[in-house]
Amino acid sequence: MYTALRNSLANLLRVPTTPPEVPSGTYGAVEIMRASPRYLTYSLLGFYLGAAITFVVEAVALVSVFVSGDVWAQVLTVPVLLLLALGLFLKWFLVRIDYDLRYYVVTDRSLRVREGAWTVAEMTLTYANVQNVRIEQGPLQRLFGISDLVVDTAGGGAVAHPKHSAGVAHHVRLAGLEDAAAVRDKVLSYVRQHGRTSGLGDLDDAERPTAAARLAPEVLAAARELREESRRFRQAAEQAR
């Protein structure tokens, strides 16, 4: 049911159905990753918990309305319930489609993450700018055997939606990875390969590793002339004796 619904809505919502483009350039390694299917289960569990709380609140409200016997309040409950049902359905659909739209492109020089359904965000960064890499795992995530890999670049600011990097600059979150440690090792090895610059746009890193300085040919020629001249000077001094 979900797949049919998504296929019919994909065009209306204009969501991208293909994986994100790999950043332009040539790479030693390109890997396109998805969140684990267990991440979907985990997200749906969160949705069901929220829905259960909504149902309890609704049931209490319904009982109190019918106990009060107010006819207008009873009539009003119908559209309110319909609206709540629609909202829940929308939320469920968003949880499902968020999982389908999620892509992580890991190359040996850059990282690109796509996420979000209302706002489709694609974040690109190069390892030259990576400041730190961390793994985050909550108790429920541990139960499901998944964790998030967060890659930070320099810069700060308040974190408005910690679970959604779409809202926050300066970091990307690879959510719901089954083997976050392996991806972390891979990212760290790429960062190391890149070299150890501060990642703050140092203008001098444009200068590549340079060779030892060559002597100007004139210096050697002058030294040879000086040697010949000193030899003649010695010979003159010896003959004058």
């Binding site: 706002t119 690109t124 320099a154 779409a166 990307v172 746009g201």
Partner: peptide, 27 residues
């Protein structure tokens, strides 16, 4: 530091997008 391309539903309908450019500042 990083480049974000963001397109909300309205922007996707209108066929446009926002390219956000981040530098290492505190915001």
């Amino acid at each position: 530091q990083d480049i974000h391309v963001k397109r909300n539903l309205v922007e996707r309908w209108l066929g446009i997008g926002t390219v956000q450019v981040q530098t290492a500042s505190g915001s």
